Computed example of a mutant assay.
Amino acid sequence: MKKTRWQGWGPGEQAEQQYLVQPRALAGGGDVRHVAEFLRASGWRDKSKTGGPLLMESPDRTVRVAYDPYILPGGWTVHGKAGGPGGEWSAHLGRQTPVEIVAGLTDALTRSRSAHAPNVWAPLEKQDWHTRFEGQDYTATSPDGTAWMQYRQSPDGAAMWWAGAQDAQGTGWAASFTPNTPMHLVQAFSTELASPEPVMRPRGRVPDSAQIRTWSVSVKPSQLSAWQQARITAARAATWARSSVQSTRPRTTARPYTPAGDARTHR
Rank of each mutant, 00 (worst) to 15 (best):
Q153K: 11
E16S: 11
W227G: 14
S112D: 14
V199W: 01
A159R: 14
V206Q: 10
G74I: 01
R213P: 04
A115D: 15
Q150I: 00
Q22Y: 09
V217L: 13
R242L: 04
R249S: 10
S112Q: 13
M183S: 11
G87I: 15
W76K: 14
E197D: 15
L109W: 02
G135L: 06
I212A: 08
T141F: 00
R213F: 07
A122M: 12
S195Q: 04
D137I: 02
G83N: 14
P143L: 10
A15T: 05
K2H: 09
E125M: 13
H130K: 07
E13V: 10
G80I: 05
Y257T: 11
A174K: 06
R236I: 01
R40Q: 10
P69D: 08
K49D: 04
R249L: 10
L93Y: 06
E125Y: 05
N119T: 05
Q14A: 15
P59I: 03
R236N: 08
A194I: 05
T171S: 12
R203S: 13
G75C: 03
E88C: 01
S195T: 04
K126Q: 13
V21D: 03
L93H: 08
M56W: 02
D208L: 04
Q187H: 10
P23L: 07
Y70I: 01
P198Y: 04
W121K: 07
F133G: 07
T139C: 08
K47Q: 13
G204V: 02
A27V: 02
F177A: 09
T146C: 06
E134T: 04
R236E: 15
G261N: 08
A263P: 00
G8P: 09
F133Y: 03
V65P: 09
R201C: 15
L185M: 10
G30E: 05
T252W: 13
H184M: 09
R249D: 00
A226Y: 03
Q223I: 10
E197I: 06
R95W: 10
S112V: 03
L55I: 04
P118S: 10
S218C: 02
T77W: 06
S112F: 11
V99A: 11
W9Q: 13
A234V: 00
G30S: 06
A66E: 07
H130N: 13
E192P: 04
M200K: 08
M183N: 12
P118M: 12
R33M: 09
S154P: 00
A210Q: 13
